[in-house]
Write a protein that binds this DNA or RNA. Structure first.
Lengths: 157, 157
DNA sequence: GCGGCCTAGATGATGCATCATCTACCTGGA
DNA sequence: TCCAGGTAGATGATGCATCATCTAGGCCGC
């Protein structure tokens, strides 16, 4: 490796501010969700995916693609959500290896109850703080970085 | 609460892209650090703070302010780092309640070894992807949101 | 129709994050 | 001087994230 190019002042500040902002924001969102509806942000995201799916049913690997989670994280998380009655696991007819995850009534009720407060908090703490231009740029930046992440394999990075 | 203002299309996309980008980016950074130097991102940040401190020593509450972590997270984390020999806990002369966290030689060696690869990865996966304007915008947005987070108490939010 | 390889998913171990709670010490006022 | 409240920090329990590994069924060429 050649000599390290350390971060200059502006890079340093931007990078640290970004990391810290995300950390604190997600902590707050988590706390609000947890306190008001007993769901974690992770639960919420799983439930959103299932709600958007026809019949409230998805194969775990579809869920995985939608969430971009690690497979084992998803599997463990589903186990916990199943234990709490938010989702159910069913057998899959088309593929003997597979499973189907189904939103339960309790799961549907939970997300319906949680959504307004969560959306409101996202607005108050984040979206309302940004101009429309800033929002567009943020999306642009996020998409660029995501493309970069997709493009680089684990090797070296 | 009044009727929920749901997210419009652009808000939805920007918000989700942002969340996903951060999640995947930090996962990659963590893996790289872990694989190449056996440190987590959290370890790294603690070590950075200590390295920047005079004499490699800080009170836990100073560390906490620098990192903006929860107190108990920090305490647990220090316990683990202490067990691995990266930091040491000492008694505090000025304040009988307090402690002092000191960077050990092993800790110093660990971060010196880890830094180049980490900085390089941050560049390759993130900074190099952004224009200078985008970087400035990101910092601006992060600071705005952080100010918002500071301004709102836990109550309601 | 069976050997190798792939994909779908579960699981045990371990480290991490958070919550609630606890101890010990400091500080200011009656 | 003593007690009330506040600050510094540690700790046990619990849920979460990741790694390595495992099972089982699908798929393909021979």
């Amino acid at each position: 490796m050649s000599a390290t190019r350390w971060l200059d002042d502006e890079e340093q500040r931007a990078w640290r501010a970004f990391i810290r902002m995300h950390g604190r924001l997600s902590a707050r969102l988590n706390r609000q969700l947890q306190a008001d509806s007993g769901l974690s942000l992770a639960d919420y995201e799983v439930l959103v995916q299932l709600t958007d799916a026809p019949d409230g049913r998805l194969r775990p690997f579809e869920l995985q693609r939608g969430l971009q989670w690690e497979q084992s994280r998803l599997s463990h998380h589903l186990t916990r959500m199943q234990r709490r009655g938010l989702v159910a696991r069913e057998e899959c007819d088309e593929d003997g290896r597979g499973a189907v995850v189904a939103l339960t009534d309790a799961g549907r009720r939970a997300i319906v109850a949680a959504a307004p407060g969560h959306v409101d908090t996202v607005r108050r703490l984040f979206l309302d703080e940004l101009t429309r231009d800033q929002l567009a740029m943020l999306r642009q930046v996020s998409d660029q970085v995501l493309a970069r992440l997709d493009a680089t394999t684990e090797a070296g990075g």
